[in-house]
Design a protein around this nucleic acid. Structure first.
Lengths: 222, 222
DNA sequence: ACCGTCTGACGAACAGTGTTCGTCACGATC
DNA sequence: GATCGTGACGAACACTGTTCGTCAGACGGT
C-alpha cells in the first residue's frame, strides 16, 4: 500500500527551512489569502512540507504571528527631515501604514507590552523625538504608550478597510442608511448629522495631529 | 442500544431559549472561563442544550460576540453632572470600563463601523457633548470616530491587563529587565528611561485628557 | 571507509472547533 | 382528534493547532 519513499533528491532542490522563511511565507499567505487562510497547514503547504516541521522554528501559531508583526514593523521608514513634530507624525503614519498592509496583524499587538525588536526600535525613535521636543521623561513615556496604542488600532482599522470588505462604498452607504433610519428621538444627532459623519477627508492625519497637539498640552502630573 | 427517549418533562422545568438568554449566558461564560472557553458547545452546555440549538437565535459565533459586546455597552452610565468636558471624559472612561470587564470583547468592535444599538447610543451622546462644546459638525464627527477607536483599544488593553496575566507585577518586571538588557547603542532611550517608562500614575485618565485637549486644538480642515 | 550520534523533516493521530443537516417531539391551530 | 409548523438536538463534516514517534541523511571521530 505504501508508495516507495520518494527521495528528496528527486524533487527540485528545496530551500532549507528556517524561521525567517517561515515568517516571510506567513506574510505572503496572509497578504494573498487573508487571515482565515493563515493556518499552519497552509503555510507548510506553500513551503512544500508538513505542518509539524514548522514547530522546530516556531513555538506556536501566536509566536508566528508575533514574528510576522515584527517583520512587518521592520519595514517602517524613519523620516529624517522636518521639525520634530513633523517627523513624529510621519513616523506614526508610516507605522500605521506598515501594520495596515497585513490584515489582522495589528490585532496581535494588542493586549501585550511590545517586545519585538523592530517594535522597540519604533518606540525608541518616538521617545527620541518627544525628548527632542522638550517633554519631560514621564510625559514622553506615557505619550509613547498612547501613540503605540493608536498605531495598533489605526492599523487594524485601516487593514479591515483595505482588504476583505468587497465594496467599501456599498458598505458605507448601507451603514449610512442604517443611521438615518434610527429613531430620531433616541438618536437625535446620528440621524441628523449623516453628512458630517461620513464626510471625506484625511481623518488619519488629523487623528495623529490631535494626539500630538494633545500630548503637548497635557503634562503627565503625578 | 439507544436509551429510551427522556421526556423533557422529566427534567426540572427548563427556561426556554431566546437570543437574550444566550447572549447573557455567553457573557457569564466569558467572564468566568475566559475567551478560549467561549465555544458554542460550552454556551449550549451551560444552557443544558446542544450547540445546534443556538443557531436558531444567533447567526454564528461572531454574531453572538457582537451581541455580547452591545449588551456590555448597554450598561454604560451616562454622567449628568459637570462641564461638558468632564461629562465627556467620564463617558469615555465608563465605556472603556464596560468593555474592559469582559476579556477580548473589545477586539470584536475593531475593524467595523459600530452598528449595535447601545454602541450607537454612546456615540450619539458623545456627539451631543461635543456639539455642546461648540465644535463644528465635521470636527465633532471625526472626534467621535477617534474617541470610539480609543475606547475599543483602551478597553482591549485594560481587559488583557485585568484578566489572564497571572501576575502583572512579575510580567512587568520581566519586560523591564528585557528593556534594560537591550543594546544601548541601538536603543538608547528604552535602556535609559526605564523608571519613566514603567512609572505608575493614572495613564488612562491622562490619555482621555490628551484626546479631548487635542480635539479642541485641532479643527478638521477640509 | 566505516560507524555511531544527532538534528530536523514529517505522517499520523488527538482533541478539539464552528457549522449544517435531517429527524422528531411538542404546542397551537383547524 | 388530526394536522402543521417551530424549534430542539444528535450526528456528522471539514477543519483547526499541536504532539508524538519514526526515520533519512549529514556530521564527526576513529
Amino acid at each position: 500500500m505504501s508508495a516507495e519513499p520518494v527521495s528528496r533528491r528527486a524533487r527540485p532542490a528545496k530551500a532549507p527551512l528556517s524561521r525567517a522563511v517561515i515568517v516571510r511565507t506567513g506574510l505572503r499567505v496572509l497578504d494573498r489569502e487573508g487571515l482565515d487562510a493563515l493556518t499552519m497547514r497552509r503555510v507548510a503547504q506553500v513551503l512544500d512540507t508538513g505542518a509539524a516541521s514548522l514547530y522546530v522554528y516556531v513555538k506556536n501559531r501566536d509566536d508566528l504571528l508575533a514574528a510576522m508583526l515584527d517583520e512587518a514593523l521592520g519595514r517602517v521608514r524613519f523620516p529624517a527631515e522636518g521639525s520634530w513634530q513633523e517627523r513624529l507624525q510621519v513616523l506614526v503614519a508610516n507605522s500605521i501604514d506598515a501594520m495596515s498592509r497585513h490584515e489582522g496583524l495589528a490585532l496581535v499587538a494588542l493586549g501585550g507590552i511590545p517586545t519585538g525588536l523592530n517594535a522597540l526600535l519604533v518606540m525608541d525613535r518616538m521617545l527620541a523625538l518627544l525628548k527632542e521636543g522638550g517633554l519631560d521623561d514621564t510625559t514622553a513615556a506615557w505619550a509613547v504608550d498612547l501613540l503605540y496604542l493608536h498605531i495598533t488600532v489605526a492599523g487594524a482599522e485601516q487593514a479591515a478597510y483595505n482588504t476583505k470588505k468587497m465594496n467599501a462604498a456599498d458598505h458605507i452607504a448601507e451603514v449610512r442608511k442604517l443611521y438615518a433610519d434610527l429613531p430620531a428621538d433616541r438618536y437625535p444627532l446620528l440621524t441628523s448629522m449623516g453628512d458630517a459623519l461620513f464626510s471625506a477627508g484625511d481623518r488619519d492625519r488629523w487623528a495623529i495631529q490631535v494626539l500630538v497637539n494633545g500630548i503637548l498640552n497635557t503634562p503627565a502630573d503625578r
